[in-house]
Design a protein around this nucleic acid. Structure first.
Lengths: 240, 240
DNA sequence: CGGATGTTTGATGTCATTCAAATTGTGTGG
DNA sequence: CCACACAATTTGAATGACATCAAACATCCG
């Protein structure tokens, strides 16, 4: 529950107003005072190691989570055991939105590396939405952008060839790195080739081939999981 | 703006509490009194004929819309002119959610048949969210289910063969018909073969072939746009 | 009725998958 | 620190699923 009668945080080490993700997180656009209320509601949970689950598909819905550091994949498994990665998430991203309607998680979230999270209970989320219109609008905006991301994903899967898909994927990662203050030209992929393949709906071998193909064309440099984009322009041209 | 000081509707012919979509629309779970406030805010706009636009991609964001009758497709066009249908929507569905974050519509919505809509301005939406916690939660739930739908879509596009895709598509339509009180076994598709093909990321000819294939297998009966599901069980088995 | 549009069906081609093997990377225990 | 086993990635060759091209057919609407 939000302890709105005091602005003094019970967790002095944790303060949303000093968080470097402030602007891209739900706290964006909130006043100093509103942020203090948010700080009261947010809980830091134990960090996860690579491969550990933040929550499982089917778990009852209790809280939303925000990635604080590291990265995760969001996986959906259907009746016949097929797995589909429906998204990768990075610091500042909000997790668990799909569970609101059905009151249980429809995806599993798995850490791709050592990762930490903020936890915000559904009750507190609603109280904050009611109290702080900036929070309300900011969280809806994040929700909305999530929808756009997945729409772009569907566009890529439906309309594009494999080289285009990979280019679009790399540009999306690049964009997210940039938003978070990292280099848009050089980064380490936190997911495996198989994860990328599954996400894009293609075979892992094809991902490999297209990586080397893009390298041959001089658009990127790949070494293991390190990617350097030689020409963003050319990559955009390929993405279409 | 919501005229909350009076519960008497300015549009006597329009009353959310008597709407047959009450339960699946944003009005679901709202109290009688809250519904009255919603009624004040909602505006009925001119109906659209087949092929007409409710809004265009790029239009500034002002309002959300709810399908009252008929059906629409939601289309995204990218830089190189490729079009992707990212969803079909039916009575009770909320439209325009993708525009909240970017303050402009990222998709175009086109009527598949003569269709009518309710309009709810973004300002009123926020006021209602603030005032009525049931409305707030209900709209988030609808938002959340939209995410699940598109995730299921991505699953189908990434993991499944064409026969499965079509089976999944038909089951999704069947489910939506059922939710709206129509037969889940027999319905008229409001979209063309090309629309279905585009949505599923396959060729129109392939849609044709798979329809006849499913018919040969005795799972469905197709006549033009009328579909009869002979065996929901078998169709589910094919969908996987 | 007649042209335009949408749909079905058939023949051929192609891109991505699949299968298989080689290579490299990673973690663990000696 | 090195050797080993296991996992991930890369590369090659063959197959296959779906797309594309082309034409016939049906439907809709004036």
């Amino acid at each position: 529950m939000v302890a709105s009668h005091t602005l003094v945080s019970l967790h002095p080490t944790l303060d949303c107003s000093h968080c470097r993700l402030h602007s891209i997180c739900v706290a964006g656009n909130m006043t100093e005072e509103e942020t203090a209320v948010l700080t009261q509601a947010v809980v830091h949970i134990n960090p996860l190691k690579q491969g550990e689950f933040l929550f499982h598909q089917g778990d009852p819905f209790e809280s939303l989570y925000i990635v604080r550091s590291g990265s995760v994949k969001c996986v959906m498994t259907d009746a016949d055991g097929m797995e589909q990665i429906v998204g990768f998430n990075f610091p500042g991203d909000l997790l668990g939105l799909d569970a609101i309607g059905e009151r249980c998680h429809t995806t599993s979230v798995i850490a791709l590396q050592h990762s930490s999270f903020c936890k915000l209970s559904w009750d507190d989320f609603n109280i904050l939405s009611q109290k702080c219109s900036h929070f309300h609008i900011q969280s809806l905006s994040i929700f909305s952008r999530e929808l756009i991301h997945i729409h772009e994903m569907v566009m890529a899967m439906g309309q594009k060839g494999v080289e285009q898909k990979l280019a679009i994927f790399l540009l999306a990662i690049s964009q997210r790195m940039k938003e978070r203050g990292f280099s848009e030209r050089e980064f380490i992929l936190s997911m495996s080739r198989s994860d990328i393949a599954n996400f894009l709906g293609i075979a892992p071998e094809t991902v490999s081939r297209e990586f080397t193909q893009l390298q041959k064309e001089g658009v990127i440099q790949v070494d293991r999981r390190r990617v350097q984009i030689e020409s963003l322009e050319n990559l955009r041209a390929i993405a279409g």
